[in-house]
Design a protein around this nucleic acid. Structure first.
Lengths: 123, 123
DNA sequence: TTGACATATTCCCATATAAGAATGTATTGT
DNA sequence: ACAATACATTCTTATATGGGAATATGTCAA
């Protein structure tokens, strides 16, 4: 099997850095394609293609207005990704705690009789 | 240009569902490859390849122990993803608020003089 | 109608999968 | 040394990019 399509889900869609840029840009307010092209600095067909991917997985909404198309980020579609990554939060906090505890233990050991151990360049 | 490599960053690496499964499994505790194979239910070479991708982008740590290799999720490497998705949180909350406000306005309008509007099937 | 403008779509191509099969490598027990 | 165990790597193949160039589609304005 080949790699899953970029349009298969939000995880695949946001793997592309340009699409993340577009999402960040469009979350503040609705924009037409030309504005995105100017803001992101890539050519119009590429922007349209990225918007197509984002739209297909529901990460952006689109409405027509005359000859313009107005896109905006559908933030709600990002929430599941936030929740998935959030399931790891307690574990990275554990890691931080362990690092902090080691550091504090080290500090007190040094404070006892190792003052002045660091070379000046590190201060 | 082709699609970016799965090993180019964490966003690309987690796009694959099996790799997300593996990360969830390995975050609880260190495991050897054979355990992952049994738990996830895919063949050993595939697991090894997925582990290779995850390891290359720093999403898992590995240590050797005799003929075993013990892998565990490096939760800290997931934090940046959580933070990126978190930048959209205020926006999806806004959306929710708007939905809620509309619903509440609707309720009070109905409560005033439209009681009994819903068909029984919806209650 | 005829342009002009805003976007989308198609075609081409170099590149990168992911799964399956087969094989290679390292380590342990005897 | 040798067989068994635990993993990793290589090869093949069907499939899917993403960028660039060219072209098509849809809408407004005169």
């Amino acid at each position: 099997m080949a790699r899953a399509s970029t349009t298969s889900d939000a995880f695949n869609a946001i793997a592309e850095p340009r699409r993340r840029q577009i999402l960040s840009y469009l979350v503040v307010q609705e924009r037409q394609v030309g504005e995105i092209v100017a803001a992101i600095g890539i050519d119009q067909p590429s922007v349209s293609k990225h918007l197509g991917v984002l739209h297909k997985v529901g990460l952006v909404h689109m409405r027509r207005n005359g000859r313009h198309r107005l896109y905006r980020t559908n933030a709600a579609a990002i929430q599941p990704l936030h929740e998935w990554t959030g399931t790891f939060e307690r574990y990275w906090k554990h890691q931080l705690n362990r690092v902090k505890e080691r550091a504090e233990a080290q500090m007190s050991r040094e404070g006892a009789n190792n003052a002045g151990t660091f070379p000046k360049e590190n201060l």
